[in-house]
Design a protein around this nucleic acid. Structure first.
Lengths: 187, 187
DNA sequence: ACATTAACTTACTAATAGGTAAGTGTCAAG
DNA sequence: CTTGACACTTACCTATTAGTAAGTTAATGT
């Protein structure tokens, strides 16, 4: 089944969010799926191969988010809110952003996965910058601030809040998400 | 020598910043210090023990930063700038914030280290909130924004920028640091 | 009925991880 | 001169890791 491959990647991403790339093993996956470790190796010969497919999924997921937002005819403010929401609200409280997790493990990643996560990071920043720029022309955000700075700031706030949530509890994320919306709406 | 213990902790923190808690090993340390693995175990019996001492050093380092800033009779703006600078500029470009790194590895950490990193995270946020609050009373920062939100936002921006720097190059960090100063001075 | 393929399992590597027990050399105090 | 502590080394152990080779099973097409 092509389904099994999807199952493995889905679980692997969850494990990356929970324990990082270095921290998860083929044994974790095989036990949770009720098959042998060798069967995971059948679908993804090397951990590296699984790593590459994970990053490709993250890239596709980002591009999907962008398409959804671009084609919806809502205000720039709404687009910004939606994109931020999508970066945060699909995760459980033991999970952080998978991109952040791979960035944190960067130095331990196989070369190909490093290159892939570079791409994904660039893509995410580019998308965020586009949305911020649109919001600036519609005066949702103060036009005097630098686009790159605002993009990094907003993304980092959300990802940082996910890290804080896991160690300090739900409140931090909820408040950052609320205040971020308020902050972006005011001047 | 008590010096050797310091050497180990210093190196361990560097390794955490580079490869994370899960990613570094006693072998890494012993090889870089030119001694055997067993001699590292002599100083820190379990990796957990080393983990605890690492977090205690991070905590002391934070308290030190606070003391330095509190006792200097500079403006609230200058204090804010100094604290931000201290969170970022002592690291090489293969290194991220050690607190971020341990937060990212949270689910793989031994229980005691988890509790310690909770403490450190709370401490860092508290210090940042104090500095932000002081800056607000002196009108360096818009008084309408929530203190907790601003603290998370500023810290996350710096830590996020360190992550981005490692995968995308120096420019991101430099710009975020510059723009952060501009942002905090303006409205 | 036969061959092929996908999706496995069994049974194994070799390397590395954290960790330990027992011994060695050095040096200072009694 | 000896004791004892300190800072190690040698030589191990066990568990886990990624990875592989060879065999099994069930379904599919010819």
């Amino acid at each position: 089944m092509e389904n099994r491959k999807k199952q493995i990647v889905d679980l692997a991403i969850k494990l990356v969010q929970q324990k990082g790339y270095v921290g998860f093993s083929y044994d974790d996956i095989s036990k949770q799926l009720g098959v042998t470790k060798a069967s995971i190796h059948y679908h993804f010969e090397k951990k590296e191969d699984l790593g590459v497919v994970i990053t490709e999924r993250l890239s596709k997921s980002l591009q999907n988010s962008l398409l959804l937002i671009e084609n919806s005819s809502v205000s720039a403010e709404e687009k910004l809110k939606q994109f931020i929401q999508q970066r945060a609200e699909r995760f459980e409280c033991t999970e952080i952003c998978p991109i952040s997790s791979l960035q944190a493990d960067f130095e331990s990643l196989p070369y190909i996965v490093q290159e892939k996560i570079k791409e994904v990071s660039r893509l995410e920043l580019t998308i965020m910058k586009e949305i911020v720029a649109e919001a600036q022309t519609e005066k949702i955000i103060s036009g005097s601030e630098d686009v790159q700075f605002l993009a990094v700031m907003i993304l980092s706030s959300v990802k940082g809040a996910l890290l804080y949530r896991r160690v300090l509890g739900d409140d931090v994320l909820v408040e950052v998400l609320n205040q971020l919306n308020r902050f972006l709406r005011s001047p």
